[in-house]
Design a protein around this nucleic acid. Structure first.
Lengths: 203, 203, 203, 203
DNA sequence: TATGAATGAGGGTTCATTCAT
DNA sequence: CATGAATGAACCCTCATTCAT
């Protein structure tokens, strides 16, 4: 029986994931800067120094949390975007996928919301800016296609609409609690209903 | 004879306001925790220690920024709420007023968005939680009234709708730049159009 | 009466020099790595954090100690080298100048001896390597000139001789105590006598 | 039956010697304090913790390196001193022996040069001070005997001469590379020629 | 023998804050 | 009003060391 993991690629990824989840939770609750490395360690039942056996630095932890989340997000998004759906269906699928990601990575999303803007300035987090751009291209493109196809209204400023939809979806991470009343899909359904048809009663 | 001995009742409220504006700008750009008192002082052309002639503490500066903003916000809101408008008109007025506040207090709003949640836990910032509650009561009440009056759709989860509208409006502070293409009123109009009627083309 | 120092070029260079002298003394006694910043502060009668008002970092302190020393050393050396003396007189002048520098910068020289080798690898301390090279050129050149002029023996490996003379001089910093029995000039005289004429009695 | 329970009496002295050599090399290159136990382990192809199977502590490693070196050094020196040679011949033999030791224990000598002064203060390394004293007695005594016998010059400060000769020899460890152009014996010959007869041409 | 994971003391550094001038 | 200098607590991180496996 051959040894697996001949090289110590990453020793015990399970423990690593646990610690990342713990850290993400604390970062999300208190903010990255306000979180001490000791607080994370406390929460994980170890001493502050012990974290450095698993990670390079506090920033490294943050990095791994965010990049892991973005990787998974884009996996989902890319699948949707490659499916060749119409603009409305694409928006629906993207929104639904987004709420699913919020469900799975609530803490990471909350951190992303709060910190990505000023983080993106640092070279290490350059991928945040890159992702942001790709994100914009995907959503904005779909909206434009929808306007061209006369599926979406043409009397609205499209960039405003983009920001509106984008923010609407992601801010949800700030109040969403997994295991609550609504499934991600149910929330997506209601959000889409509001965004697409409005909250006013039709005459 | 005006009182003189009370601490930090500076004879020059103008300079004070300048400093607060500077601080707010930096807090908004970098986050409260990531902002050093020295950075603020630099921006104001003085040394860190000198700030303490004007203010008690860094937290005191934050406090004054947020409470000033909230005071002005509620002045506007209270006027709207006291006007006896119908639910739809009330929502329209609140949204418009909100964008006006974002226009005037962009930095304060951005800070509020990022920091209010964990700040509200501290006694000193108890008024944030109080304001939040009052805020919710005003919006939620209006929405409920609208559903009862059959002005707003009844098939939506009303708390979800509340969050949706609330977030939609305030997140704008994260990208809004005063003096841009759109006036606050124009942005309000478009936002209201989306929220009320949706972005999909009606058949 | 005009203000002096319109800009804060370097606030209070006197205090700075004091602190540098204190730090140099501790570095020399305990080694750079074994010296804690707290120890330096203790010696200076302040708290560790206070040092950072005057200096960027521990490494910055070391840097300033070494570069200040080397600057002054080269001032002296360059004067000697520009004087157009014969090889023997040049060697005599360089050795004398060296002992004078040891007298004035004993701590810095001791630090230099112990740390320069591994420090020179870091970019920040690249000037150490540069100085080393210039140093070698000056001494080796003078020795070669002396051999050509038949002032120095030609039967010796000249690089070995260079190292011999160089080390002979500088190691003195490890035991030299200013204010001891011998003046730098007297030590220089004896060293030169040994190096030039040897310790054996002539027949 | 060999003793077994004594701590760290490893059954494989070969491995032990290897590890000591590795450690000595790193200590010499980076300085004792700047060397981490992990760096040594890396170099030896093991993990930091594993070193503690072989040694008590980092200090223990250093101790063993230095004491082993000194033991061997004194074996050689004692032989020379017991041979009943004249002062000049004794100096010649000691210098030659010293260069042989540098050849065999270059790293240990380099460490000794850099660290012995502040190490000697600790009780554990008391033998460094003792050795130093014995060393001084041997050299200084020989020099004095030489002056009395009119073999060495009497117009020089004898302690200065001692330091001069001592340092001259040992600093060589800082640049000596085994397997270079010169054998230890050849270097000794040239050094002796310089020290005894000087580098100046005789008239 | 060696590893993986953790400990805990301490080190360099930052920063809000103070205060005499 | 503002500066220069210092305080002191806290923070991130390092590293020698331990120990169960």
């Amino acid at each position: 029986m051959p040894k697996q993991n001949a090289k110590n690629v990453t020793p015990s990824p399970a423990r690593r994931r646990e610690l990342l989840a713990t850290a993400a939770e604390v970062f999300a609750a208190q903010g990255y800067n306000a979180t001490t490395v000791r607080k994370i360690a406390d929460e994980a039942g170890m001493l502050a120094g012990s974290l450095y056996y698993h990670f390079d630095s506090k920033e490294g932890i943050l990095d791994e949390i965010l990049s892991t989340f973005l990787d998974e997000l884009w996996e989902g998004y890319d699948t949707v975007l490659a499916a060749g759906l119409g603009p409305r269906e694409t928006i629906e699928a993207l929104v639904t996928e987004s709420f699913r990601e919020i469900d799975r990575h609530r803490a990471a999303v909350a951190i992303y919301q709060k910190e990505s803007r000023h983080l993106a300035r640092q070279p290490r987090f350059g991928y945040l800016a890159a992702s942001q751009e790709k994100f914009e291209k995907a959503w904005l493109g779909t909206l434009e296609r929808g306007v061209a196809d006369q599926v979406f209204r043409s009397d609205l400023d499209i960039r405003l609409t983009y920001r509106f939809v984008r923010d609407t979806v992601w801010v949800a991470a700030s109040w969403y609690r997994p295991g609550g009343l609504h499934t991600p899909e149910e929330i997506a359904r209601q959000y889409l209903s509001m965004v697409l048809d409005g909250i006013a009663v039709r005459e």
